[in-house]
Design a protein around this nucleic acid. Structure first.
Length: 1125
RNA sequence: AGUCCCGUAGCUCAGCCGGUUAGAGCACGACACUGAUAAUGUCGGGGUCGGCGGUUCGAGUCCGCCCGGGACUACCA
């Protein structure tokens, strides 16, 4: 046991980090913190799995700080908080990374390199940086169980995922369909949205655009248009930026509520009379105002300006299901569906084009959706190479983009232009123009992406949309707007989840299909697979059952690794259908997001193991990840839990924002502005980084990470806290203070003790509330304010003398106990945010008596506020004392009188009798602080004070009848002179007539009276308080001031000589007419303060070689001799 | 393009239910202190609260539109 509080020369947070880490390691503190709460209620936390094939960045430190804070807090609150780490190991980023390293592309897989080899490479790459992750996790103090993580590629994990898929399959929530996906003809591969979001993928390109004329068929629906015009035909105008999709057009889309016009005009190219339909909002884009006056009848074919006349207006809904003729009749017609009709689409806008959208369901996602809704078929006249197929007649063999062709260059005629010219000549183009827009490009080949229909499996999330929304409303989102806004919107516009990916390294889709697709089986477990395989062996489709030895009740890796549940092994398994046909696995993998969304189940290998455990660990009380996960992990967790368990997956979620560089730019390796997390933690210590991140900004706002801010946190907060501790330790050791001494009675507490304890307990309550509400920022800011402003700048400053005064006694003990209590409590309050320094501080503070406290702050309980110690009135009057002291100091500065120079009198005019007792209570504190001898409260201030009066708006606002008279009241009050104010104060009321004749009667409560000035005094005003300072210096005061100057200089000298605080001295001062009177008058004081056992005035000191020269003022110096006695 | 977040001093951020003189820290400048001292205190300059319009007796705060930054989703004629 230590009998002394450790003292330190300086604060080295990085060093503290090291020491505490070593302590935790040796002590197994994390494990103990869990053991200690074993059997207590659980606080459930889910760790979102990071991908270990990338190095951790500073933003991970941010995200993990958030997680760690609330887990540590809830642990201190007594909950059992299990934290299982996890690794996201599948998916495209891993594959791309491996392709890069091997120098291959997707199409090489299966040819240049086998799938087995490729997947082996992925398996290795995926855990490549595991040790870096483990290291950063430890260094930053994130407590999570890294020893038993869940890993998404393990067979047990996959089995759980398969089980979930099977449940969805059984609920008829899985179906096969096709969707329009980005596809790179040049690379021959589908692209994910992830790939499309690589920087530089979206590029501005200039394309030839066409406004095509679609000829309506006259029928019951469209008849009303034909009836209004003289031309035989009516055309719908539709705009496209991809004219190569026009041959595949099968429908047009209009907005049901959009206003459209029927316009009689002439085709600008063929000059033929036409009647066209377009959105009213876009009318002026095609028909300028200057042509309004031109008459249709007068039009000459050679005329440059084309006349127009609006014939009618109607809502899009009127044309629903109207028929039109195929634009290019030489093209085939779709085999299925009722094509060439006008559909209503909610995606139609009038922001550009014509307000009517050309629909080619094969080449647009919106197109496909609306076409499917109406049962309109598709034409796919382009193949995967981006080339028109044979059936496309005169277009057959053409590349839709020159970039896809090996021969064509940018200067060759494009298919778009070719089609535009063709349509022009056929009176089918109303406008042809170049248009610049952004379009995605394949990041590997730099060539434009093609949207192309591909087969996929989907999860019917739209079937549970309402339930998803309802459950979402019960989730506590931080910030709330993310839940209602971003996430809510996302759910509102939900589409079915495109589950499958044509890839290699991922969880295989456990669905086997017979060749004619008539029979399907979904496998939900290893045991089931074994059983199916057995049947297949019996049917003769498999030579042997690779799972023959698998035992369903043995969860060991050895048992589970009998068969790798990845490609290509699973592809080789042929099953048998109920009718005896062979079935092969659907070759696709599932979206990796399903892996991570399945983690509440799969991390426990549910439902095969841990069935009861799962009940306790679902749903999570809390999760936290970046906002970019809103539609990622947050969604997949939510969707899977809703569909499988009809429950939320998490009750509360904190989404944290980006970490940008200090100029607000995104960090990237390319720009070289990425902050190295290891270096940062090593240099500044995790606490400073965590503290900075937490206090600087709310976690969901993006953080402009600036090392200067980390440094500031260290200097301001940790420096002050450390100084406060060092101050405490210095004197506590001198006095042999022990923290486990019985508490002194409350009667021994001074006003300042009770004041700081009041603040402390308010702080405890606030922190508890804020942490509870996932608002660590407010908690940490409050702690910081308490430490710097209240504890250090005021409490320690006011009470320094109590600590260094000689002797012992209840008053001194009270001071030690109060300060100790404050520091100890701060350590416990701040521990979730700054786990290392809090640990250090806590252990130092309890080091003199470890038995009385937990040996780690993280094993200690969160402080409980003692409401009985909270005294708001006390806090108020101390605030007032601080304000008054500050005002006096300001006055002193103004008149250039040092604080060391005592002054006679301070006067405080009292406007409100209520403050009298408050001031009385803090009178001594004020006087001591500002070095003034008397404080007078002046109650009768008439004639002395200059007052001003203004309305109390808040008060008056409560009275409806005066609300509109506010201006008149303001004017009236501003006009009152001193006498009128005095009368008002005396009578308590003031009546007058407002401009409109309203009689107004004001009471004192309706106004605020403040003082401005005082005749003949040095005065300062702050709000309602005014102080006046008597700055007259009597000879007596000057002598006392001089004595203090002397003491001050002698103390400095003592220090310079290296004397201990307790050393006694013999003191000789040079005799001097300017100082002798002060020395004589205050001999005892000087001697006492400087511990001088002997004080002599020596006229001959000037020549003493041992004497030192002291500068007292600019003009006065004195010789002094000090000898240790 | 849609959705969401943000915009307050040179920088980082507070500002509750609308109340009339908008605050803190950093940085900068001046002064003071020197037994917490590689600390500390006091004072000071510095603001069209992104812009415009509206509601109101009164708007940084509420509403609408716009501008700028960011994120996500989409890329669609």
């Amino acid at each position: 046991m230590n009998h002394k509080f450790p003292e330190y020369k300086e604060l080295d947070l990085a060093q503290v980090n090291q020491e505490v880490l070593a302590f935790w390691e040796a002590d197994q503190t994390f494990a103990k913190s869990l053991q200690a709460r074993e059997g207590r209620p659980s606080f459930v936390f889910y760790e979102g799995p990071p991908s270990a094939n990338g190095k951790p960045g500073i933003h991970h430190v941010m995200a993990r700080t958030v997680k760690d804070i609330y887990c540590r807090f809830q642990t201190q609150k007594g909950f059992h908080v299990k934290r299982k780490a996890g690794w996201d190991t599948h998916g495209l980023p891993v594959e791309l990374d491996v392709e890069n390293r091997l120098g291959i592309v997707k199409t090489d897989i299966g040819t240049k390199i086998s799938v087995a080899e490729f997947n082996q490479a992925c398996r290795k790459a995926v855990m490549e940086y595991t040790d870096m992750w483990e290291s950063i996790t430890a260094k930053m103090g994130y407590w999570v169980d890294m020893k038993n993580p869940y890993v998404t590629y393990h067979n047990q994990y996959i089995e759980s995922v398969w089980n979930l898929l099977k449940r969805l399959y059984d609920k008829d929530l899985l179906y096969r369909g096709h969707s329009i996906q980005p596809y790179s003809p040049a690379a021959g591969t589908g692209l994910s949205s992830h790939e499309l979001n690589q920087p530089g993928c979206y590029r501005d390109v200039k394309d030839t655009t066409v406004v095509a004329q679609f000829r309506l068929v006259r029928d019951e629906v469209s008849d009303f248009l034909f009836a209004q015009t003289d031309t035989p035909d009516v055309h719908i105008l539709a705009w496209t930026t991809t004219p190569w999709t026009l041959p595949s057009n099968t429908a047009l889309a209009m907005g049901a509520n959009i206003d459209y016009l029927l316009v009689r005009t002439f085709n600008p190219y063929t000059r033929q009379p036409v009647s066209v339909v377009l959105a009213k909002d876009l009318f002026r884009e095609f028909f300028p105002e200057k042509n309004d006056a031109l008459a249709i009848e007068d039009f000459q074919p050679g005329q440059k300006q084309v006349p127009h006349r609006v014939l009618g207006e109607f809502k899009g809904a009127r044309l629903e299901l109207a028929r039109y003729e195929q634009l290019m009749p030489e093209m085939p017609r779709p085999e299925q569906g009722d094509a060439f009709r006008v559909l209503m689409g909610d995606f139609v806008t009038t922001s550009d084009g014509t307000g009517i959208v050309h629909i080619a369901p094969s080449f647009g996602a919106d197109d496909a959706r609306v076409a499917q809704k109406y049962g309109v078929g598709a034409l796919t006249l382009v193949n995967k190479q981006g080339r028109f197929v044979e059936e496309a007649g005169f277009l057959a063999g053409r590349f839709v983009k020159n970039e896809y062709s090996p021969e064509l260059g940018p200067d060759d005629e494009t298919t778009d232009v070719f089609i535009a010219v063709t349509l022009k000549n056929q009176n089918k183009a109303f406008r042809v123009a170049k248009y610049e827009h952004s379009y995605p490009h394949c990041w590997r080949t730099d060539k434009p992406v093609l949207y192309y229909p591909l087969d996929s499996w989907f999860i019917r999330t739209t079937a549970v949309k309402q339930r998803l929304k309802d459950l979402n409303n019960t989730i506590n989102w931080k910030p709330a707007a993310t839940g209602t806004g971003r996430f809510g919107q996302w759910l509102e516009n939900l589409v079915d989840w495109n589950l499958t990916r044509s890839r290699f390294w991922g969880t295989p889709l456990p669905i086997w299909v017979s060749e004619d697709r008539s029979e399907t089986v979904c496998v939900g477990s290893m045991a089931e697979l074994k059983h199916e395989l057995q049947k297949s062996v019996e049917a003769g489709f498999m030579a042997s059952n690779p799972l023959a030895d698998f035992r369903a009740d043995d969860f060991s890796d050895q048992n589970y690794n009998r068969l790798d549940l990845h490609r290509p092994t699973v592809d080789e398994l042929v099953l048998v259908s109920p009718t005896g046909k062979p079935m092969r696995r659907e070759p696709d993998l599932i979206d990796v997001w399903f892996d991570s969304g399945a983690m509440p189940y799969a991390q426990l290998h549910y439902p095969f193991e841990n069935k009861e455990v799962f009940e306790q660990f679902f749903p999570a009380d809390f999760i936290a990840e970046g906002v970019d996960q809103t539609r990622g992990w947050f969604f997949t967790l939510h969707a899977i839990a809703t569909m499988v368990s009809d429950s939320v997956s998490f009750k509360a979620v904190v989404s944290n924002g980006l970490v940008l560089d200090k100029d607000g730019k995104k960090m990237s390796k390319r720009l070289g502005n990425a902050v190295d997390p290891f270096k940062t933690l090593d240099q500044h210590g995790a606490d400073a980084v965590r503290w900075y991140m937490t206090t600087n900004t709310q976690p969901w706002e993006s953080l402009k990470f600036d090392l200067a801010g980390v440094e500031e946190a260290r200097r301001k907060f940790f420096g002050t806290l450390q100084n406060t501790y060092a101050f405490f330790a210095l004197y506590a050791n001198v006095d042999g203070f022990r923290a486990d001494q019985p508490k002194v009675g409350r009667e021994h507490l001074q006003e300042t003790d009770r004041w700081i304890l009041s603040h402390l307990n308010s702080l405890i309550r606030l922190c508890d509330e804020r942490y509870q509400d996932y608002d660590a920022t407010a908690a940490a800011r409050a702690i910081q304010h308490f430490v710097i402003e209240h504890l250090s700048n005021w409490y320690v400053r006011l009470n320094r003398k109590r600590f260094w005064s000689p002797g012992q006694g209840p008053d001194k003990l009270a001071a030690y106990q109060t300060l100790h209590e404050c520091l100890l409590t701060v350590a416990r309050l701040a521990a979730p945010v700054m786990p290392f320094y809090a640990e250090k501080l806590y252990r130092d503070l309890v080091s003199t008596c470890p038995a009385a406290w937990a040996h780690s702050v993280h094993l200690s309980d969160f402080p409980v506020a003692d409401e009985g110690l909270v005294d708001k009135e006390l806090e108020e009057r101390m605030d007032m004392a601080q304000t008054i002291a500050s005002m006096v100091l300001s006055l002193r500065r103004k008149v250039k009188i040092k604080v060391r120079q005592p002054l006679r009198r301070l006067v405080l005019p009292v406007l409100d009798a209520a403050i009298v007792p408050k001031v009385e209570a803090v009178r001594d504190i004020i006087l001591r602080e500002v070095n003034v001898k008397e404080l007078d409260l002046l109650t009768d201030t008439t004639g002395i004070l200059v007052k001003s009066i203004k309305p109390n708006f808040r008060q008056l606002g409560q009275r409806p009848q005066y609300r509109s008279a506010m201006k008149a009241i303001t004017t009236e009050l501003a006009a009152l002179d001193q006498a009128a104010i005095a009368r008002f104060e005396a009578s308590g009321r003031h009546g007058f007539q407002a401009g409109d004749g309203q009689a107004i009667e004001l009471e004192l409560a309706d106004v605020e009276i403040v003082t401005k000035d005082m005749e003949g005094w040095e005065v300062a005003t702050d709000g309602k308080l005014t102080v006046a300072l008597d700055i007259h210096l009597s000879p007596e005061l000057l002598r006392e001031g001089m004595a203090r100057e002397l003491v001050n200089r002698i103390q400095n000298l003592r220090k310079d000589m290296g004397l201990e605080v307790t050393d006694k001295i013999r003191l000789a001062l040079q005799s001097h007419p300017e100082t002798d009177p002060a020395v004589n008058a205050h001999r005892d004081y000087i001697g006492g303060q400087t511990l001088a056992s002997e004080l002599v005035l020596d006229p001959a000191l000037e020549n003493d070689p041992e004497a030192k020269r002291l500068e007292l003022t600019e003009t006065l110096a004195l010789m002094v001799k000090i000898q240790k006695s």
